[in-house]
Amino acid sequence: VEEAKKFVKDTGCDALAVAIGTAHGDYPKGYVPVLNFERLAELKKALDMPLVLHGGSGSGEENIRKAVAGGINKINVCTDAFHAAKNAMLKKLECKPNADYLELCMTAEAAVKQFVKEYIRVIGSNNQYFYGESVSTGNE
């Protein structure tokens, strides 16, 4: 925690990716990391800034929900999004071996959009913003 405070002071960064047990990329099959939520609480208390969870892919919904509840403001899950795109493209090719590049790209895009929608629900951010509309909080 002291090292994080010094780093923030020395660099003036706007957000900090914290080390609480995750890593970028794929974990071994069946492995779910054990996150250090005590350290997260200490960091959140000590730092007045957004905290980032690097390597959120494969961390499991329970860990992600708990991390958000504990103060994580941004989560990197690109590996999971890439898997969703790849799996959708492979499925498309199984069903339609002659699918062209554009079809595969559109399939991948749709799969990533669906992944993002589901992820937004996992982290509890669904129904928080509606594009083009102002949502009243009742506190105006």
Rank of each mutant, 00 (worst) to 15 (best):
E94Y: 05
K86D: 13
L90C: 13
L90H: 06
L90G: 13
T79Q: 03
K96P: 09
C95N: 15
K92P: 05
N98V: 13
I75F: 01
V77Q: 03
G71R: 05
P97D: 08
L93K: 03
A69H: 11
E94M: 06
I72K: 01
I72Q: 02
C78G: 15
A88N: 00
I75D: 04
A88S: 03
E94A: 09
A88R: 00
P97C: 10
T79V: 13
N73M: 13
K74Y: 03
M89C: 10
D80V: 05
K86G: 06
H83P: 01
V77I: 08
K74D: 11
I75P: 01
V77D: 01
N98M: 12
K96V: 14
A99I: 09
A99S: 14
I72D: 02
I75M: 04
N73H: 12
E94V: 10
A85Y: 00
T79N: 04
A69D: 09
L93T: 08
N87A: 13
L90M: 12
M89P: 00
I75H: 04
K74V: 03
L90I: 14
P97F: 05
A69W: 09
A99E: 14
G70W: 11
A69M: 05
K91E: 13
T79D: 05
A69P: 04
N76F: 02
K91F: 06
G70S: 11
A81E: 01
N98Y: 13
E94L: 08
G70F: 09
N76C: 07
M89S: 02
A84M: 09
C95F: 11
A84H: 01
H83E: 11
T79F: 08
